[in-house]
């Protein structure tokens, strides 16, 4: 129902009767808001076009001369739109959002090391600690050795990060396939979807962890 003229005639963003802008529902998910299906390999160009088009529809710059209620709606809608665009534009934020949407908000994505990297990372963190305390002027040999070792770890972790990301993107493809199958052939791919969501969640938390370590290394090694 229109907040202004109380009419029930509807309209997507504007009331069909009084032409006043309507508030987007706070429950509207970002995919729907950006007119996208709930998939992960999105058409980024189309996303940008929708963003620009909706910005032209809602932006406060076009509501300066309207009354306070319309201004407030324009502001709220644009803030939602900006959040939707920001989240969906970035593939990692996009999948994180999808996981929250599909699996409920309870499961936060944490930062956890991949199991096979556990030993290596422990050692690396010790080396980092030592390197930070070594004075290169007093003990150049140890400093150089540690530096070389840390540099090698950094390169290894960087390639590992790439692997994690391509593994994640591979699951993007599988997710989109499952989404395409939904409703067809009477098969419910829900169990497969949930498994896939869990895999993606693990990959994401590993990625966050590895990225943080690489950032630490970059800050220390300069």
């Amino acid at each position: 129902m229109c907040w202004h003229c109380q009419s029930e005639v509807g309209g997507e963003y504007f009331c069909k009767r009084c032409v006043k802008v309507q508030p987007l529902s706070p429950d509207l998910d970002y995919f729907t808001c950006m007119k996208l299906p709930r998939i992960l390999q999105i058409d980024e160009k189309a996303l940008e076009e929708t963003f620009y088009e909706l910005s032209r529809t809602f932006h406060p710059d076009f509501y300066t001369t309207r009354d306070e209620s319309e201004k407030a709606i324009s502001l709220g809608n644009t803030a939602l739109l900006n959040a939707a665009y920001r989240t969906l534009k970035d593939p990692f934020q996009r999948v994180e959002y999808l996981i929250r949407l599909e699996a409920g908000s309870a499961k936060d994505i944490r930062s956890a090391p991949p199991a096979d990297l556990f030993e290596e990372i422990l050692e690396l963190q010790e080396d980092l600690e030592t390197y930070r305390t070594v004075n290169p002027a007093e003990d150049p040999e140890t400093a150089n050795q540690l530096r070389a070792k840390l540099q090698a770890s950094r390169e290894h972790l960087e390639s590992r990060l790439e692997e994690l990301e391509s593994a994640l993107f591979e699951r993007f493809r599988r997710w989109d396939e499952l989404q395409g199958q939904s409703g067809h052939d009477g098969i419910d791919p829900r169990p497969q979807k949930d498994a896939l969501l869990r895999e993606m969640q693990d990959l994401l938390s590993h990625r966050t962890y590895v990225r943080n370590i690489i950032q630490d290394l970059a800050d220390t090694l300069g």
């Binding site: 910005s55 032209r56 932006h59 710059d61 076009f62 300066t64 001369t65």
Partner: peptide, 16 residues
């Protein structure tokens, strides 16, 4: 120019 956008006389440009 921004003033003309706010006044409604320029609908072509939008600054984000």
């Amino acid at each position: 120019v921004q003033a003309s956008i706010l006044s409604g006389s320029n609908q072509d440009m939008l600054l984000l």
